[in-house]
Amino acid sequence: MTTEPEKRTGLVPRWARWTAVTSIVVFVVVPISTLVVWSFAFRWNFPNILPTEWGLRAWSYTASDSSRVLEGLWNSTRLALLVTGMAIVVGLPASRALGQHEFRGKSTVEWLLMMPIIVPALVATMGIHQIFIRLRLTETLFGVALVHLIPAIPYFVLVMASVFANYGTALEETARTLGANRYRVFRYVTLPAISSGLLVASMFTFLISWGQYVTTLLIGGGTFVTLPLVLFPFLSGGNNSTAAAISLVFVAPAIVVLVLTSRQLSRDSALMGGFGKL
């Protein structure tokens, strides 16, 4: 049996484009505009389509000390940055080894890397909790960052390994023979070549840390407060407007990342090739 080839307009089939547009509207535009409306609502009763009274109360509360939003924002930011930094330090050499070299036990390492994606990070965190108490790592920024690495590292390494695999070693070897030592090869040849991939992987890592709730709660012990921890009580009960305002603060980086990555991805088709390997 033969099938008719798909009718295409340009590079992307029409149905795929419509699916993409529709899902962006349904899953991103609608919820976020609703949040924006809610955050400025003072009175909004059924069956009105829009609030009957508008106000900035939710936003001024969000900015106040008592809401702990600013504290959470500060903690979430430095935490996500620290996690990203650690992911780069640990993950870059690892992903390079996975992407460019063959070694014994490579498939085992790859399998182990997938574990946190399959087994919820919660399970691992429960086990680690006891050890962290003994090491006095609980309720510290560093301790929480270490735990965030568990779900973050696999994504970082998988993305970067495919970037490295695509890029190969010939250019670096050429540079070595031309008189560049290891450091300068990395600085002048490797880094420029992998930079867009590294940007994307780092942003993924940042967002994974940004969105952690249970792991932060367990290891942070409630004293180390991040945005999700601040947000949660407002979601489960309380003021809708305030919850909406905090939610907007919470999703802001994700939107920024989405825009930045999509620009990177469309500019750098080599990287898309890299994702194709995943």
């Binding site: 010939a170 250019l171 070897e173 050429t174 070595r176 023979t177 031309l178 560049a180 420029p192 070549a193």
Partner: peptide, 27 residues
């Protein structure tokens, strides 16, 4: 390697992709 002065030219992946010709040659 970097101090031997034995320079290798490979078959593929020839030029540094982020550099122009002058930067490649002058590397």
């Amino acid at each position: 390697t970097e101090r031997r002065g034995a320079v290798m030219v490979f078959q593929k992946h020839l030029l540094f992709p982020t550099m122009n010709v002058a930067q490649n040659v002058g590397f």
